[in-house]
Measured scan of single mutants.
Amino acid sequence: GKELVLALYDYQEKSPREVTMKKGDILTLLNSTNKDWWKVEVKATANDKTYERQGFVPAAYVKKL
């Protein structure tokens, strides 16, 4: 199945390749080969529509579930 990670801290994206997350968010882990930056998929809701974004977050800010 898919691997999930838990956001340990809030993170505000600093570039278009990154994604914003809030502490407590559960994210889908896409790639953890880089030890510093993990690629995740974030589900977000805006205007009653759910959309998914993929991007990088600092590996130290998340932990595998």
Rank of each mutant, 00 (worst) to 15 (best):
Y11R: 03
D10H: 04
A60P: 08
D48Y: 07
G1R: 14
K63E: 12
E13R: 13
Y51G: 12
K14E: 07
D25F: 04
K64I: 13
A7G: 03
D25S: 06
V5L: 10
G1V: 14
K35I: 10
P16H: 10
I26E: 03
N47K: 07
T33W: 09
F56W: 15
K43D: 08
N34S: 08
M21I: 15
E3V: 14
W37A: 02
T33C: 14
E41K: 08
K64V: 11
L8G: 01
G24Q: 02
L29Y: 03
T33R: 10
L4R: 09
Y61Q: 05
M21S: 00
D48H: 10
G24C: 10
I26V: 12
A59V: 05
L65R: 02
P16A: 13
N34T: 06
D25H: 05
E52Y: 15
G24R: 00
A7P: 00
L29P: 00
T33L: 09
T45K: 11
L30F: 04
D25Y: 04
L30D: 01
V40E: 00
M21C: 08
D48E: 10
V40C: 03
K63F: 09
I26A: 02
K63Q: 14
A7H: 01
A44T: 14
S15Y: 05
K22I: 08
Q12L: 10
D25M: 12
E13V: 06
K63V: 15
N34Y: 09
V19I: 14
D25A: 07
Y11L: 01
L4Y: 15
T20Y: 03
K49D: 10
V57N: 01
E13Q: 13
T20K: 04
R17M: 11
R53I: 08
G1S: 13
K49L: 13
L65S: 04
G24A: 02
S32E: 14
L8T: 03
D48I: 06
D48V: 05
Y9Q: 12
G55K: 01
E3G: 09
Y51F: 12
L8A: 03
L27S: 02
Y61G: 05
A60F: 08
E18Y: 05
A60V: 09
G55L: 04
S15H: 10
K22M: 08
L27I: 07
K23C: 06
T45Q: 12
V5Y: 07
D36Y: 15
K35Q: 09
L8P: 00
S32L: 04
N34G: 09
W38S: 01
K39R: 11
L6G: 02
K64M: 10
K2N: 11
G1L: 12
L30W: 04
L4W: 13
S15Q: 06
W37V: 02
E52L: 15
L27K: 00
E52D: 14
Y9A: 10
A46G: 12
V40Y: 02
D36S: 09
V57D: 02
N31P: 03
R17T: 12
E41G: 13
N31S: 12
S32M: 08
P16L: 08
N47H: 12
T50H: 10
L65N: 03
A59I: 01
Q54C: 12
Q12H: 14
D10V: 02
V5A: 09
W38H: 01
K35H: 10
K22D: 03
T45H: 11
D25Q: 14
L30N: 00
W37Q: 01
V57L: 02
A7V: 09
I26N: 01
V57W: 02
E41M: 13
K64N: 06
V42G: 09
L4K: 09
K49E: 13
A46L: 14
Y51N: 09
L30H: 03
G1T: 13
Y9K: 14
A46T: 13
N47C: 12
P16N: 10
T28E: 10
Y9D: 06
F56R: 01
T45E: 11
Y51L: 11
K23E: 06
T20F: 06
T28N: 06
E13N: 07
Y51T: 13
I26D: 00
Y61W: 06
N47L: 14
D10T: 05
T33H: 10
Q12V: 15
A44L: 15
R53S: 04
L8M: 08
Y51Q: 09
P16Q: 09
V42K: 15
K2C: 13
K39D: 03
K2F: 13
K23Q: 07
L30S: 02
V19P: 01
K22G: 04
L6Q: 08
V57T: 01
R17Q: 09
V42H: 15
L4T: 07
V19N: 01
K64A: 07
L4H: 10
P16R: 09
G55M: 05
K2Y: 13
D36G: 08
A44H: 14
Q12K: 13
A44G: 12
R53V: 08
A59C: 06
T20L: 02
E18A: 04
Q12T: 15
V42N: 06
V62N: 01
A60L: 10
V40T: 00
E41F: 06
N47R: 05
S32Q: 13
K39L: 15
G24P: 01
K49G: 12
N31Y: 06
L27T: 01
P58G: 03
W37C: 05
D10G: 07
W38Q: 00
T50A: 11
V5S: 02
V19C: 07
M21N: 02
F56E: 03
L6H: 04
E41A: 14
K63I: 15
L4G: 03
S32A: 11
K63W: 08
D36L: 13
Y11A: 01
A60H: 13
K2T: 11
K35S: 12
T28W: 13
L4N: 06
W38I: 04
T28I: 15
R53Q: 07
V57Q: 01
T45I: 15
L4D: 04
K35D: 11
K63T: 13
V62P: 01
K63S: 10
G24D: 05
P58C: 04
E18F: 06
K49F: 12
K39E: 13
K14A: 09
W37D: 00
K43Q: 13
F56K: 01
K22F: 08
L27M: 13
L27D: 00
K64F: 09
Y61C: 13
S32R: 08
K23R: 09
E41P: 01
E18S: 05
N31I: 07
D36T: 14
K43M: 14
Q54I: 14
G1F: 12
D10A: 06
E41R: 09
D25G: 04
Y61T: 06
E18G: 09
K39Y: 15
E13A: 15
M21E: 00
D36W: 15
E13L: 06
K14Y: 04
W37P: 01
K63L: 12
K63P: 02
K22L: 07
L27C: 07
A59Q: 05
L30V: 12
E13S: 15
D36R: 13
N31E: 13
K43S: 13
V40H: 02
E18N: 05
V5R: 00
K43H: 14
L27W: 03
L8V: 06
W38T: 03
L6R: 09
L65C: 14
P16E: 10
Y11K: 00
T28L: 14
V42M: 14
R17H: 13
G1Y: 14
P58N: 04
A60N: 11
W37N: 02
L29S: 01
V42S: 14
Y9W: 11
V40P: 00
E52R: 14
V40N: 00
A44Y: 15
N31Q: 09
K23F: 04
F56P: 01
K14W: 03
L4M: 11
Y9S: 08
N34E: 09
D25W: 10
T28D: 05
E13Y: 04
L65D: 02
L6A: 06
K35E: 10
G55V: 04
E41L: 14
T20A: 06
V57M: 00
L6I: 15
Y9H: 10
D36N: 12
E3T: 13
K14T: 12
K64S: 08
A60E: 10
K2A: 12
K64C: 08
K23L: 04
T50S: 10
A44W: 15
K35L: 08
K39W: 14
D10Y: 04
A7C: 12
Y11C: 01
E3Q: 14
K63G: 08
T20R: 05
Y61R: 05
V5Q: 01
G55S: 01
K22Q: 10
P16C: 12
A7F: 02
L29M: 02
E41Q: 12
E41W: 07
V62S: 00
L27N: 01
A60K: 12
Y61K: 07
G1P: 11
V19F: 09
G1H: 13
T28H: 09
A46F: 14
F56S: 01
G24H: 04
G24E: 02
Y11P: 01
Q54D: 07
L4F: 15
G55H: 03
Q12G: 07
D48L: 08
I26Y: 06
D36A: 08
W37I: 01
A44Q: 12
Y51C: 11
Y51A: 13
A7R: 00
G55F: 08
R17E: 12
T45A: 10
N34I: 05
R17P: 05
E52K: 15
T20M: 04
N34F: 08
T28R: 14
